[in-house]
């Protein structure tokens, strides 16, 4: 028996909107720790890792570890039927091939349930090692989304370089080149508007911009985004999910042959 009640149901709606275009089918894993997902895109270039900790749910019952295969597009369709202020409860019986999403309006005057078929999803879990990153950049998530969108109108790849000066995003294409430099800036009214550049070693890596643009669909989840970079390692783009966990995107770099 599985029963997870999430008062801030909009979080789950936002998570699905953030990942449904990158990953088609995935297994949601449920354990005492929380509700999680790890999945790669079809080309195995990017990886999504979601964690919603059990403590973040108002009610969390998961009698035994289970893995539920879902088509994310279908799940997103169902969650779109929940209001932004609705409480969402996920329910599944042992051995059942369906999951039920129950939506309750804040005033309890409307209660809906949507039952979705589960599916078998072949997925390989990858071990993500703890890494010391050469550089960690924290910036407003909307700013990062703006940069990715702007640069993708000029080129297909972005070079992200972190130096003492700050973080530089560069691209080039048929029509020309573009460089955006963000300097550390902590003299802001609100902490979420700060840009913080922590650098242990200078680092410069090249990535496909279209993946970054897909990751920025996580922007509604958090005011800030953290970008962790190390030479010849996948970059981590992380959106924290307030008091619950995180949505992390890993992207393999392009490396000169």
């Amino acid at each position: 028996m599985l029963e997870l009640r999430l008062v801030q149901g909009s979080l789950l709606k936002k998570v699905l909107e953030a990942i449904k275009d990158l990953v088609t089918d995935a297994n949601f894993d449920c354990s005492a720790t929380g509700f999680s997902l790890q999945a790669m895109d079809s080309s195995h270039v990017a990886l999504v890792s979601l964690l919603l900790r059990s403590e973040g749910f108002e009610h969390y019952r998961c009698d035994r570890n289970i893995s539920m295969g879902m088509n994310l597009n279908n799940m997103a369709k169902m969650l779109k039927c929940a209001g932004n202020d609705d409480i969402i409860t996920l329910k599944a019986d042992d051995g059942s091939d369906t999951v039920t999403f129950m939506f309750e309006s804040p005033t309890q005057d409307k209660i809906s349930d949507f039952e979705m078929k589960l599916m078998d999803v072949d997925s390989e879990h990858l071990g993500i090692p703890e890494a010391e990153y050469h550089a960690i950049v924290r910036m407003p998530s909307t700013e990062f989304a703006r940069i990715c969108k702007d640069l993708s109108s000029i080129g297909d790849t972005v070079v992200i370089s972190v130096t003492k000066e700050g973080v530089k995003f560069s691209t080039s294409g048929d029509i020309g080149t573009a460089n955006v430099v963000c300097r550390q800036n902590t003299t802001v009214d609100k902490p979420e508007d700060a840009t913080i550049v922590e650098m242990n070693e200078p680092v410069s890596l090249t990535f496909a911009l279209r993946y970054f643009n897909s990751f920025t669909k996580g922007t509604p989840l958090s005011n800030t985004v953290t970008i962790s970079l190390s030479s010849e390692l996948p970059v981590v783009v992380e959106y924290k999910i307030a008091e619950m966990g995180h949505l992390r995107f890993y992207l393999a770099p392009k490396i000169e042959e």
Partner: peptide
């Protein structure tokens, strides 16, 4: 030329 790597090059299967 920069070649796109795959995630599985960096992270091993569990």
């Amino acid at each position: 030329v920069n070649q796109q790597r795959q995630i599985t090059t960096f992270f091993a299967k569990k």
